[in-house]
Design a protein around this nucleic acid. Structure first.
Lengths: 238, 238
DNA sequence: ATTACTACCTTGCGAGTAG
DNA sequence: TCTACTCGCAAGGTAGTAA
């Protein structure tokens, strides 16, 4: 999520789409540069160079080449690009869609979220970038499967990025935040997603300046709707 | 629908998306080349050239420039490109989605479809490209609004193109066909869409080798589900 | 202010070819 | 067969500037 879709050439973007269609998001696929070349009506040399650039320069795919062919897998950064493109495209084709509604059911986690967000470095960034001090706990929401593609849409938008850090030998990764609204509640709320498990999960963690579970009298299994506004223009915090 | 997404550069594609987000699909928008340049972090000159190419060479936007700025509107061909990209992207991100189901209700048209498809030039092409001789009539289906984005997905896929022609001074446009399935019916069926009204409509016309209305005992208001398979790889009939 | 031309220069393509 | 290097050339970038 540190790269924007217009940092890629059309070739590279199409190649990424092509790989994803061959399920290179899930597994390593086997392919030759001539196959790629044929698909794009271009030369084998260009295909080779694209692949190298997609791997070495852009870091969007993992890749190893042998005498017999190449093996490629799209990595999380590459998947980000695709979701980012989907988000922009959806806003382009359906400009009347200004809010995404997502429903999920509350469940109890292991308290990990609570532990993580209370690291002071994260806390400082939350205050600085989101403008509020989160209550010391997170609300876990399991999103119903029908809504996952809408959840992906949110994840494809440009997040507020809370940088990771290292503390006593332990790595804390980046956290991505998406500011959401809960109906009838004025308190500020954000969905947070660890950088690593960005996609492929149907779980959202919410933080807020208030204790949502108490304020809304939520129990495990309670249904909760969150709204995400798309009205922002593209604002990359560069 | 005569251009493929990889015939565009990344700049041009992003510019098209940008215009669409500003609702340039519906109306002419006012913009300056410096605004475009700033958005893409490029020079004003490059923005100008992109715009010219998008208009003159690619024919994806209509455009007029004045001393005070430019005025741009995306034309149907440009919208095609965006939907085509959406289709490929959807297949990339959700490879498990192999069939699109769409529900609509039957209604009676003015018999126009029947008149059009029975032109012998169309008929010959239907037989040649679809492999069956359509019954001399069409079945009109009004798609419910919730399914329109899925309908757009179908329209974004590469169609079988039935070329238009001229007959006794009258122009008959291209017709786009999408081969669909109707549950429990083995007869071959295709949805046909006139080239001009490709998007923005929630109406589908079906043709088949049999009389669907009679065979399925359909009345006005009957609900009908159609399935569209995405399992094809990209096959441009080029 | 604008747009868009010309001139220059950098990036990136394809052919040939080595490993 | 594969991949991926070098090299010559074409496409596409920016700067300056005219209208």
């Amino acid at each position: 999520m540190y790269m924007k879709i217009f940092d890629l050439s059309s070739r590279e973007l199409n190649l990424l789409i092509y790989f994803a269609q061959l399920r290179a998001t899930e597994k390593e696929i086997s392919i030759t540069t001539s196959q790629i070349a044929e698909f794009f009506n271009t030369s084998q040399q260009t295909a080779s160079r694209c692949l190298i650039r997609l791997n070495k320069e852009l870091g969007l795919v993992s890749w190893r080449s042998t005498r017999k062919g190449s093996f490629v897998q799209i990595n999380p950064l590459g998947l980000d690009i695709l979701h980012q493109l989907r988000f922009e495209l959806e806003r382009a084709l359906y400009p009347d869609l200004t809010t995404i509604h997502i429903q999920g059911s509350v469940f109890s986690g292991l308290g990990e979220g609570k532990y993580y967000i209370s690291r002071s470095s994260y806390m400082d960034s939350f205050v600085k970038k989101l403008g509020f001090k989160p209550f010391h706990g997170t609300l876990n929401l399991r999103i119903q499967l029908d809504d996952v593609d809408r959840l992906d849409l949110i994840r494809g938008s440009w997040p507020v990025i809370i940088p990771g850090f290292e503390e006593s030998g332990r790595q804390y990764g980046d956290v991505l935040c998406y500011e959401v609204k809960i109906p009838d509640i004025s308190a500020r709320v954000a969905a947070i997603v660890p950088r690593r498990t960005h996609y492929g999960s149907n779980v959202l963690e919410l933080i807020s300046e208030i204790n949502l579970r108490a304020a809304l009298n939520l129990k495990d299994g309670s249904e909760l709707t969150i709204n995400y506004s798309l009205d922002q223009t593209r604002e990359y915090d560069k």
